[in-house]
Amino acid sequence: MAARKLHSEEWGQAEQIGYLEPLLISKGFRWQDLALRFSLPKRAADLKNQKIEMQILLEVFEYAAELIGDDAAILDYYSDMPHGAIPTFDYVALCAPSLRAALQNWQRFIALRTNCYQMTFTEDRALGILTWDVPDRLGPRTQNMFAKVAWASSRIEYIVKDPDMRLTVELTVPSPQCTSRFQKKYGNRLKFSQPRDRILIPGRYLGAVPPKSEANLYTLVETMAMAEVEKVLSLHDPITRIRAAINDHLKAGDCKLERVAKSLGMSQRSLQRHLEAEGTSFRNLTDMIRRSLASRYLRETNLGLKEIAFLLGFSDLSSFSRAVKTWFGVSPSQYRRDR
């Protein structure tokens, strides 16, 4: 069974899942051990140029760590990933005229990897700051964030080639129970349960020229990437906007059909037609988002149960507890203890 193409859902490039195959094999498992659980293709190579719902992609990463019994292995695996393994994203950085341009390119071309979160690069007086803004509604993301920061930091280090550079990595997700070389290398510069997912780069290194920087090759890579982005952004994507609006209204405590439709500049009937075209309804989509948010908050944060209930738009804790029991088969406290 091939991975579904999801042009009107919140998607990620499915080949990201395929990158896990060598890790599974190195730990004594097969690709099929992962593929069967999530109805993925029989060969990891068949994921190329496919899109998959982002929530499922994140679930695959979480399950892979559970399967191999090591919740820190992905940090080392992605840090060691060969250059060019993630073609466009590697090349628009490694062929760029400077580290600054490389980080700006990751922001420019993130649309090639997903349509539901952003990478941003900003500067202040002392730092360059690379940030991932992954919506909580997508659910737990610990392992996928480990992959992102380990891959990105290894590319930044390769570009700079200065052993004295000290990157700082901040993650919203909790610390793994296992340990890795990556954790030992970064020590107290790797911080968990932080407000943002980001890498802090000393500003004096932003002008560093990548070893593989080459003007003609860079022009070719950039042109191809820009053409791909234009193609992706030309796709009409109302469901992503609806999901984001529901997420915002849940947090504000006023998640009703008429309010969400008004905030999007749609009639209620128009919003319902978009959802019907995707085989869902406002109620079902809201419930799915609440479920994903509940899983994320219970598994990856220390927020109190009353606070989580409020953020999900429940009127009281007992209503939230009943919903969690329906979704996960256990109470909120038990679900959190099982993380």
Rank of each mutant, 00 (worst) to 15 (best):
G279I: 07
G279V: 05
T280N: 02
S281Y: 05
S281R: 05
F282G: 01
F282V: 03
R283G: 06
R283K: 10
R283V: 14
R283L: 13
N284L: 13
N284Q: 15
N284W: 07
N284D: 15
L285Y: 04
L285R: 04
T286E: 14
T286V: 01
D287A: 12
M288W: 06
M288R: 08
I289K: 02
I289M: 08
I289R: 00
R291D: 10
R291N: 11
L293V: 10
L293S: 11
L293P: 04
L293K: 15
L293M: 15
A294C: 13
A294R: 00
A294Y: 01
S295D: 11
R296C: 14
R296T: 09
Y297T: 01
Y297E: 05
L298M: 12
L298T: 06
L298W: 03
R299W: 07
R299D: 06
R299G: 03
R299S: 13
E300W: 00
E300M: 02
E300L: 01
T301A: 08
T301D: 03
T301Y: 04
T301R: 02
T301G: 01
N302M: 11
N302L: 10
L303I: 09
G304S: 14
G304L: 09
K306E: 12
K306A: 14
K306C: 11
E307R: 12
I308E: 01
I308R: 03
I308Q: 04
A309V: 06
F310D: 15
L311E: 07
L311H: 10
L311C: 04
L311G: 05
L312H: 04
G313H: 00
G313F: 00
F314W: 05
F314L: 04
F314P: 04
S315Y: 04
D316V: 02
D316Q: 10
D316M: 02
L317F: 13
L317W: 11
L317C: 08
S318W: 11
S318Q: 14
S318M: 13
S319A: 15
F320C: 12
F320W: 10
R322E: 08
R322T: 07
A323I: 08
V324R: 02
V324Y: 01
V324S: 02
K325V: 09
K325Q: 14
T326Y: 12
T326C: 08
W327P: 01
W327F: 07
W327Y: 12
F328S: 01
F328I: 00
G329Y: 09
V330R: 07
V330W: 07
S331C: 04
S331V: 04
P332W: 10
S333M: 10
S333D: 06
S333F: 07
S333Y: 11
Q334W: 08
Y335M: 06
